[in-house]
């Protein structure tokens, strides 16, 4: 996927990351946590132009949940409120054992997509989200068994090597879909030059999704549009609309990147178009 895709008019897939697994309503009151809140947020994001919703589950008090039952309740709320949006479950889970991280893949029906973290990530001062190759392979194999498309999450340049390694170990269906993540800490340093290098280092034929944390969400989303990639926005990754002003919703952030894409002449994919592009 290259600038040529931009010129050729390939539609851009917008993913809305609605909730996440790190912060909660203590950070922003607008973050959806309950199944009903997430279902309504998914519908609003879809109406704004998102084709995919990336989902995490929470307990009633906002703390992290991994059970298939909790994801099932969320999926049902999404289907009740949204039209045709593609559901993508997170399998991320800093500190949680593999047995917990498998659970979001166990809904009926399974999600069409699920995230697959490609390697370790430091958190706070004394924590690491490990994501060993054994964990990556086990989660991938379960996705394969259940017909779930993996979204490969590339936190940094080393994780690009891990994508190539996974392709050596497993026979991934085309197109490979990788999210390139930019921000502080363990993430790839958010510079345009690093973005270009990350795109160029992906396997031939891979599609990329663009994730900039915090204030990098808008500029990196715009770069993703111009480089022929896809874009993820939402309150999981960025709680501000502009400096000092909380975003009101993920839908508001979707509306903004959709407006950018349309201004730049890039069509925004419907869920049906996204399914075709991603081979779902």
């Amino acid at each position: 996927m290259t600038y040529a895709e931009y010129l050729s008019g390939e539609p851009v897939i917008v993913t809305a990351a609605l909730t996440g697994g790190v912060h909660g309503k203590e950070t922003t009151p607008h973050l959806p946590e309950t199944p009903e809140e997430i279902g309504r947020a998914a519908a609003a994001a879809e109406a704004a132009g998102a084709a995919v919703v990336h989902l995490h589950a929470r307990r009633e008090n906002g703390e992290r949940a991994f059970s298939a039952g909790r994801f099932q309740a969320i999926d049902e709320a999404v289907r009740r409120h949204a039209d045709d949006v593609i559901v993508q479950h997170s399998t991320g889970g800093t500190g949680a054992p593999l047995s917990e991280r498998r659970k979001p893949l166990g809904t009926d029906p399974p999600p069409e997509m699920a995230s697959l973290d490609m390697g370790p990530l430091n958190r706070y001062d004394h924590l690491t989200s490990e994501n060993t190759r054994g964990t990556v392979d086990a989660l991938y194999d379960e996705m394969q068994d259940r017909g779930i498309k993996p979204e490969l999450e590339v936190f940094n340049d080393g994780h690009r090597n891990e994508v190539h390694g996974l392709l050596d170990r497993r026979d991934l269906a085309d197109p490979v879909y990788a999210t390139l993540i930019f921000g502080p800490g363990t993430l790839t340093r958010p510079t345009p030059r690093n973005f270009l290098a990350a795109v160029e280092g992906l396997p031939d034929g891979a599609l990329f999704n663009t994730l900039g944390f915090g204030r990098h969400q808008l500029p990196f989303g715009t770069l993703g549009v111009l480089l022929g990639g896809h874009v993820r926005v939402g309150l999981e990754d960025n709680v501000y609309y502009r400096r000092g002003e909380l975003a009101e919703s993920s839908a508001q952030l979707v509306e903004r990147i959709v407006a950018v894409a349309e201004r730049l002449g890039r069509e925004v994919a419907t869920p049906a178009q996204a399914r075709e592009i991603l081979g779902l």
Partner: peptide
Amino acid sequence: EFVQPMRADVCNDRYDFDHATHCE
């Protein structure tokens, strides 16, 4: 302060977390 949900798992020593080790 209220803590982030991820940190609440550390506070509660859930999974493999141990607040004495993992919480700065």
